[in-house]
Design a protein around this nucleic acid. Structure first.
Lengths: 117, 117
DNA sequence: CTATTATATACCCATATGGGAATATGTCAA
DNA sequence: TTGACATATTCCCATATGGGTATATAATAG
């Protein structure tokens, strides 16, 4: 076996800098393939390939508009990564514990003071 | 060029499931190589190889103890991933905007009420 | 229908991968 | 010193990669 396939999971898909770059651009809004080709310095076929990977792991969706294909970011697919990393966040952010308490506090208030919203 | 080297950045290092598994174990505390070999089902040389990658990107540190080498998690190395993903978090967590406001609020209080702490 | 534009796919290649097995290195014990 | 234990390194291999170039497919224009 070589490395795990990039299309297998989001972690691998996002490990490639070009693909993160594409996502960063799409975060700003829908783009056609040529738009992306213009914004990053990469040949069109390569952009298409990266988009394919991103599509396969659910990170982007496509919409046909005439002869263009408009790609749109689908952020929720990143949640697994976020969830995994978040478990380690306390390692570098000591304020998180305090925030935890605060959130619990607020949740309590929400339950008491606004019962029935 | 093939894929970017795993040792290049944290994103690639963490793209490998085995390495995430190792980190997950180390999150519980220091471990020797053999401890890790026992906990995940993988041959010792492979564990050593994965540890090497993790060391190279700063995700773990080593400490010699007799003939053992104790590996320890170094969480802050994950911060780049966290920071990158966090930018997209609003996509799936609508409550974040509210939290933003809240935090700003608190920061203001902190500046006014406790000036000089 | 043909040409042009937009995108995707197929092919080739150099390279890094992760697993496996064997072996080297390092450390302690007898 | 010799042997057992712990870990790292080296070698080989099958495979997936990402880039490049050429080409296929799709859609619109003329």
């Amino acid at each position: 076996m070589a490395r795990a396939a990039t299309t297998t999971d989001v972690f691998n898909a996002v490990a490639e800098p070009r693909r993160r770059q594409i996502l960063d651009i799409l975060a700003d809004g829908e783009r056609s393939v040529n738009d992306l080709v213009a914004e990053i310095d990469l040949a069109q076929p390569l952009v298409s390939k990266h988009l394919r990977v991103l599509r396969q792991v659910g990170l982007v969706s496509v919409r046909d508009e005439g002869r263009q294909r408009l790609y749109r970011l689908h952020g929720p697919a990143l949640k697994p990564i976020h969830d995994w990393v978040a478990r380690y966040q306390r390692t570098w952010n000591e304020r998180l514990d305090a925030l935890d308490e605060l959130l619990n506090e607020l949740q309590k208030e929400e339950h008491n003071g606004r019962t029935g919203e």
